[in-house]
Simulated scan of single mutants.
Amino acid sequence: MTTIAVPRWRGTSVLNQIGILTGRSVRALVSDPKLMIFSLLQPLIMLLLFSQVFSGMAGTSSFPAGVSYIDYLMPAILVTTGVSAALQSGIGLVTDMKNGVLARLRSLPVNNMSVLVARSLADLTRTALQLAILLVAAVALFDFSPAGGVLGVLPAYLLALAVSWALSWIFLAVGAWVRNAETMQTVGFLAMFPLMFASSAFVPVDSLPAWLRVVATINPLTYAVDASRNLALDMPVGGGVVGALAASAGLLVVGVFAAVRGFRRPIAS
């Protein structure tokens, strides 16, 4: 009797896997609008508080002439909100590890890289929607009207997304290695707050104390904020955008490598 060899099914292509897994995560986001609402509260509250607390900075010698504080602040809020949103990538990965989703996926012919890329793309989609809503709210509620107009704000928006996506891979790497939501949040906040507040995000670097000015000058977030702000305000950009994108690319490469290595480790039951 002749035995017919049945080829083993090895799953669909990596691109199809990424599309299916990304769609799954995006549908989960759409089905839970409360998550989007609460994620918008923090940047809106920051926009309200900082626009009132630091509004007196406008018109000082260290502040750009003829620029309102809200126009100065909003591009930075785009970048810092993107940084905060990137943290959710790592937390989401840890959550999927704990609730058994990734264990089920590992029993299927699913490429590990597909899982990580899908997670990053789903979170990038969420961040893009979040920043778009934030921009609409800034225009409608805070009279955000920078000199660069739409042609300046759009590249600033895209730059914030690029920075956010690169950092999401760093947090994916942290999540893949620590595998604990509480530790993930602690590491994330310890990294984010120095980056956000020891930078040019909320006040000009020249107005900071001398020691903090040194920190802000070497802070990579300062370059992203300055580039985003100069685009929105129609100011000379110089090499700021290239520098911010180059730094993001470097973080992306490191994050992808570390995330893949960490994700390959067995998931503890």
Score class of each variant (00 low, 15 high):
3 T>Q: 13
3 T>F: 13
6 V>F: 06
9 W>Q: 05
11 G>V: 02
12 T>M: 10
12 T>N: 11
17 Q>T: 02
17 Q>L: 03
20 I>R: 14
24 R>Y: 13
25 S>Y: 02
31 S>H: 13
32 D>N: 14
34 K>S: 09
36 M>Y: 14
37 I>G: 06
37 I>K: 01
38 F>W: 12
39 S>N: 06
47 L>R: 02
47 L>I: 06
48 L>D: 10
51 S>Q: 08
55 S>D: 15
55 S>A: 15
58 A>C: 06
59 G>Y: 04
59 G>R: 07
61 S>C: 02
62 S>V: 12
65 A>D: 11
67 V>K: 06
68 S>P: 00
72 Y>V: 00
72 Y>S: 02
72 Y>T: 01
74 M>A: 09
80 T>D: 01
89 S>C: 15
92 G>T: 11
92 G>E: 13
93 L>G: 10
95 T>R: 13
97 M>H: 11
97 M>Y: 10
98 K>H: 08
98 K>S: 08
99 N>S: 10
103 A>M: 12
105 L>S: 02
106 R>D: 09
110 V>G: 01
113 M>C: 07
113 M>F: 09
114 S>Q: 10
115 V>W: 06
116 L>P: 00
117 V>F: 07
119 R>A: 14
119 R>W: 04
120 S>K: 03
120 S>N: 14
121 L>P: 05
121 L>R: 11
122 A>Y: 02
125 T>D: 05
126 R>M: 11
126 R>Q: 08
127 T>G: 14
128 A>P: 03
129 L>A: 07
133 I>K: 04
137 A>R: 01
138 A>V: 12
143 D>Y: 09
146 P>M: 00
148 G>I: 00
150 V>M: 14
151 L>I: 05
152 G>E: 00
154 L>N: 04
155 P>Y: 04
159 L>I: 06
160 A>S: 06
160 A>P: 01
168 S>A: 14
172 L>C: 09
173 A>W: 03
174 V>A: 08
176 A>E: 03
178 V>T: 09
181 A>N: 03
184 M>A: 02
185 Q>D: 11
194 P>A: 14
195 L>C: 09
201 A>Q: 03
203 V>K: 00
204 P>F: 01
206 D>L: 07
207 S>A: 13
209 P>G: 06
209 P>H: 13
211 W>Q: 10
214 V>C: 07
214 V>W: 11
215 V>K: 01
223 Y>K: 05
224 A>F: 10
229 R>W: 00
231 L>G: 02
233 L>F: 01
239 G>Q: 02
241 V>G: 15
244 A>I: 10
248 S>K: 04
249 A>W: 04
255 G>M: 15
260 V>M: 15
260 V>T: 12
262 G>R: 08
269 S>T: 07
269 S>R: 13
